[in-house]
């Protein structure tokens, strides 16, 4: 859980819903990507223009990757965890960084203001929400070549792959909607209206239910993936941003930027069951829940 206001990451134990550690990172952390295989979390720090590398076994920062004049936001890993993709929306590019040497391998330019990024399940394609060009860019994750673009709504930002890996959900911030992309054909198959100024999206493990944060109305929209309709709207903490699904306990965790907290929703009842105090201005942009392989 990245906390923009106090430059920390809160580590939350999902069994007890308590903060087990608070780690100081760079300035104004936003994005998070977790590599459970190598016990690492990568945190993008917008204002210090860097990426903090956390060991999630010991909860210590093991390295800070300095980026020159770059405002990193979205972050994702390739399938092996050997390469890190960092979206720099000020220079309309994605940096590819080798995670062992921390060296920048290359940059990929494809659309304007790249924000959220998601790797396809088999790891072949990297999807990038190009916020200011209103499209999702598809990049070959192995040779880093742009493949094609998919037009979506206005200002695509957060994205997620459905639990079964077949669909990509893209939040269109200014259209108040979610675009559904079939990733076998890379075409938009539906556009679902949600609440005002949506931001991030997640699904449950089998992909049957989709959850979207609506930042300007402090709610989460619950979508039935089969009917592609909103079936419930849940009031959560102020300015909800990052959202992730915990399969083990069947709960949805929502970062509340305004309330400095994590709102916990029981996925079976769609009721808020807990609120966990985190750090100032929680964001957690990315899939921030992971199970440790070994401690």
């Amino acid at each position: 859980m990245t906390n923009q206001g106090d430059h920390t990451v809160s580590v939350v134990d999902l069994a007890s819903n308590t903060v087990s550690a608070t780690v100081q990172v760079g300035k104004s952390p936003v994005g998070v990507a977790i590599d459970a295989l190598s016990n690492r979390a990568y945190i993008t720090n917008v204002d210090s223009r860097s990426v903090s590398v956390l060991d999630i076994g010991s909860n210590k920062v093991i390295h800070e990757i300095k980026l020159d004049k770059v405002a990193p936001v979205g972050v994702a890993l390739n399938k092996s965890g050997g390469q890190l993709f960092v979206a720099d929306w000020f220079h309309d590019q994605i940096m590819v960084i080798e995670t062992q040497s921390y060296k920048q391998l290359t940059t990929i330019s494809m659309g304007k203001a790249p924000a959220g990024m998601v790797l396809s399940r088999e790891g072949a394609s990297l999807y990038v929400a190009n916020r200011d060009s209103n499209e999702v860019g598809v990049i070959d994750a192995r040779n880093h070549k742009p493949l094609h673009k998919i037009a979506v709504g206005k200002h695509p930002f957060g994205m997620t792959l459905s639990g079964d890996g077949k669909l990509l959900y893209v939040v269109n911030v200014e259209s108040n909607s979610v675009s559904v992309i079939d990733v076998r054909r890379d075409v938009v198959t539906a556009t679902i209206p949600v609440g005002e100024h949506p931001y991030c999206v997640t699904t449950n493990a089998d992909g049957s239910t989709v959850y979207v944060t609506n930042t300007h109305e402090d709610t989460v929209s619950v979508i039935d993936a089969k009917t592609q309709r909103v079936t419930a709207t849940i009031r959560v903490g102020g300015t909800p941003e990052g959202i992730a699904y915990d399969n083990k306990h069947q709960r949805v965790y929502v970062a509340s930027w305004m309330d400095n907290a994590l709102t916990v929703i029981d996925a079976k009842t769609n009721k808020v069951v807990d609120t966990i105090k985190t750090g100032a201005q929680s964001r957690a942009f990315g899939q921030f829940i992971a199970t440790l392989i070994q401690k």
Binding site: V30, V46, W89, F90, K112, A113, R131, D132, W257, Q281
Partner: peptide, 19 residues
């Protein structure tokens, strides 16, 4: 292309909201 894009990018939203 890069030269044309830069001013547009500069108008884009700052990533850190204030509170």
């Amino acid at each position: 292309v890069v030269a044309c894009l830069l001013p547009v990018a500069a108008l884009a939203h700052g990533p850190s909201g204030q509170k």
